[in-house]
Design a protein around this nucleic acid. Structure first.
Length: 733
RNA sequence: GUGCUCUUAGCUCAGUUGGUAGAGCGUCGCAUUGACGUUGCGAAGGCCACAGGUUCGAAUCCUGUAGAGCACACCA
């Protein structure tokens, strides 16, 4: 027996050696796998943001995906698991800005080019850290195909996609009321808006003494931008006023011209049944104003300060302006009622700032416009059929081609699509894919536009300074990483991918966008199955975050307990979609399990001297050994089925139970007499064979879950013609 | 407002198509220096939130009630 078994299992030393052996073998790369493998299995890694280092959520994702890819590799498939990192535009830029602020450096002082150099430096540094951490988790990713969402090939994919969508009329530029983040100084999409419940005051008042209708609002400061009052067409109280226009000379120092309009959207039961229409600062009001040919009056600027108002309010912050108006209304005896209400306030996901709806010229993806889909491979959509993006996204899931686990997320997905509006894709930040659009004669009124993959030749064109929403490039991920727009072998072989595994908080940001981009650009689904894992929370059920100071570094856990133990703790009995309450004791328990396996190896290996496993005649076995082996073989059949359905949480638990409570507690104990020569030589040989045979299959079935310790023990397994355990065949009969 | 989910042992959670409830940790006994950075054997502990219904049979399917949570949202 190898002397290493005399000491306890040393994860730290073993894991580094083993990972190196795997990397040097080249087997992470499907091109190097032995024998001819016809069936493929492919996954892309959800690219971690290059904003720092990995957290437990990443560890969870890596554990699940690596277990799946190792299982598929052992099944004999040509397996590709493709790594990458995400530039995470706004998140990374903000991070670097903060770092620079420590040295009192501002981004505008540096200028765009210099600043981007800094961000890039940071991003590449961060990428290095992330890669080394990912390797510590045992991830069998094909590093030869490493990608970055902002590298040259991906930039080509982004520009190609943009151009095609523009040519199909699906990307348009328009001045609309958008979600403005005053802190981040950029537009954000609807999905980046987080609604928070807050207390607010609901004010009811009249613009002036002579004005016939009272209105209600929680934002009096926007009312200086009002151009109309809308009422329900069936509301008898206000019918006589519809169509009239009232001039208000002085509303807190500002002149207003208010037309009374009728709109079916107005609920006569709510408030006074009349709604002050502020087209520039509310999306629903914007729509009403357009339908009634009313002007837009912008009264709040990009810094959330008042503009185009009378002197009293001009330049004031919105909250100050609100107080001033409320005081003025009271003083003028125009205030009718003040009620305390719960209101949901729109805030920016990244900066936490309150969103200011503003009219701005931006780029959008039209999700409702119909177009002809060329070369459809989608179930339920014919080639050249007219369809819009919204329906395309819906069909991919409805047809069952894309299967979301657990199912309940299907319903959440449909619900999201039903409420989907056009996607604003331009951002006023520097770090990201610059929009491939050039302008000429911009301020002359004869503006010309050029949209292309390459910049126009002559020099008087100026590129749009804005960058694209980071999710635009992420949406292309399943095929941009395989070489698209080039028709590469990888693309043909591995797309659609088999599985995407990710957290539920980016189902819409990412999963939905990948479905959109893939169905539109490729005419096929991006992946067959979506496996959604839960979020990891602390013992008080809070999210892990730096600000709370409760963050746990997975590397600390690995140092204490070993990667295999951490992986098991994240996998056993955790159903998809289920949030995990982090518990260090669980990891400890699987460290003990690692030790148990190590000791089983010691016991078996120290009891097989002189036994020839390769040439043993299995016919000599008695019914007892045959039954034991059959029992485990049956179990393997069962768990193989589960693994194919991605039910790792069941398989891991069953294997744990079998190893500890069947093999160690019973089968091993029952074999001791024979092994100690207390019975016959035949009996001893039978038991030796049985134990080795069980152990071989256990090492193999356990390997996807606990790759390091199983590979290490496999080195000493007494068998000729062995390969690395990671490419041994899965033991199915 | 629209939609979704959860409630199982002290704690954290499994329970695959309906067939007399499972794991880890914790608690309590007993044993053991053994292949075991201990482990083994055993025990206590659950009317599976509650009330109805379908069924020969329900933790599992249906309806309702209560509590908890989540997603979405142009209700001023």
């Amino acid at each position: 027996m190898n002397e290493k078994y005399l000491n306890p299992y040393n994860p730290e030393k073993t894991e580094k050696e083993i990972y190196q052996i795997w990397e040097e073998s080249g087997f992470f790369n499907p091109d190097n796998l032995p024998e001819e493998r016809k069936e493929t299995f492919s996954m892309v890694l959800p690219p971690p943001n290059v904003t720092g280092k990995l957290h437990l959520g990443h560890a969870d994702m890596l554990a699940i995906q690596d277990t799946i890819i190792r299982f598929q590799r052992m099944l004999g498939k040509k397996t590709l698991w493709l790594p990458g990192t995400d530039h995470a535009a706004i998140a990374t830029q903000t991070k670097v800005e903060k770092l620079l602020a420590k040295d009192k450096i501002k981004k505008h002082d540096l200028g765009r080019e210099k600043f981007l150099e800094k961000v890039n430096e940071f991003a590449m540094d961060s990428q290095k850290t992330i890669i080394s951490q990912t390797k510590r988790m045992g991830s069998s990713l094909d590093w030869s195909r490493l990608t970055f969402t902002l590298d040259e090939e991906r930039n080509l994919a982004v520009k190609t996609a943009f151009k095609k969508m523009y040519d199909d009329g699906l990307i348009y530029r328009k001045e609309k009321v958008i979600n403005w983040d005053p802190k981040g100084q950029t537009v954000i999409s609807d999905d980046e808006v987080v609604h928070e419940d807050r207390k607010a005051v609901f004010y009811t008042f009249k613009y002036s003494k002579d004005f016939p209708i009272a209105i209600s609002t929680t934002r009096p400061e926007t009312k200086v931008g009002d151009v109309a009052v809308a009422v329900n067409p069936n509301d008898k109280r206000y019918k006589e006023f519809v169509g009239q226009t009232f001039e208000i000379e002085n509303f807190c120092g500002t002149k207003l011209s208010i037309k009374i309009i009728a709109d079916r959207e107005v609920d006569s039961e709510f408030g006074t049944g009349a709604l002050g229409v502020t087209p520039a600062h509310s999306k629903i009001d914007e729509k009403m104003a357009q339908e009634n040919n009313l002007p837009m009056k912008k009264v709040i600027n990009e810094y959330a300060k008042m503009e185009n108002t009378g002197e009293i309010l001009e330049g004031k912050k919105v909250l100050e302006a609100r107080e001033i108006i409320v005081d003025w209304l009271k003083k003028e005896n125009l205030m009718i009622k003040e009620e305390n209400v719960e209101q949901s306030v729109a805030t920016a996901e990244r900066t936490g700032a309150i969103i200011e709806p503003l009219p701005k010229l931006q780029w959008f993806i039209d999700v409702n416009k119909k177009f002809k889909l060329p070369h459809s491979k989608l179930a339920g959509v014919k080639t050249d059929q007219e369809i819009n993006l919204k329906d395309l996204m819906k069909v991919a899931v409805e047809s069952g081609e894309v299967n979301i686990l657990p199912d309940r997320f299907n319903k959440i997905y449909y619900h999201w699509i039903e409420n989907l509006h056009d996607w604003c894709i331009s951002r006023q930040i520097w770090y990201g894919h610059q929009i491939p659009v050039w302008y000429k004669n911009k301020d002359t009124g004869n503006e010309e536009i050029f949209v292309g993959v390459e910049a126009p030749e002559s020099e008087d064109w100026e590129q749009d300074p804005d960058t694209l929403d980071t999710w635009f490039s992420s949406g292309l991920w399943t095929f941009s990483t395989l070489g698209w727009p080039e028709q590469t072998d990888d693309l043909k072989l591995y797309h659609p991918t088999d599985l995407i595994e990710t957290a539920h908080d980016i189902l819409f940001f990412w999963v939905a966008r990948m479905i959109l981009m893939s169905t539109y650009l490729m005419g096929e689904i991006p992946f067959k199955t979506v496996y959604i894992h839960g979020l990891i929370r602390d013992e008080q059920n809070r999210k892990f975050s730096k600000s709370l100071g409760n963050a746990i570094d997975p590397l600390d856990m690995i140092e204490k307990y070993g990667t295999d133990a951490l992986r098991m703790a994240l996998l056993v009995a955790v159903a998809p979609g289920q949030d995990i309450k982090f518990n260090e004791d669980k990891i400890k328990a699987y460290k003990k399990f690692s030790n148990k396996i190590w000791n089983i190896a010691r016991f078996i290996y120290s009891n097989i001297d002189g036994f020839d496993y390769d040439n043993f005649d299995a016919n000599k076995l008695t019914d007892y050994e045959k039954d034991v082996l059959k029992y485990f073989d049956d179990l393997i059949v069962e768990i193989t089925g589960e693994m194919k359905e991605y039910k790792l949480y069941l398989t891991s638990e069953k294997l744990y139970h079998f190893v500890w409570h069947e093999l160690a507690d019973k089968i091993l104990e029952e074999s001791k007499k024979a092994l100690n020569d207390e019975t016959t030589a035949t009996d001893k040989a039978n038991k030796q064979f049985m134990l080795l045979n069980l152990f071989e299959k256990i090492l193999k079935t356990l390997h996807p879950f606990m790759p390091f310790i199983t590979e290490e023990i496999w080195k000493d397994f007494p068998k000729k013609n062995k390969q690395l355990l990671m490419i041994e065949n899965w033991p199915v009969n």
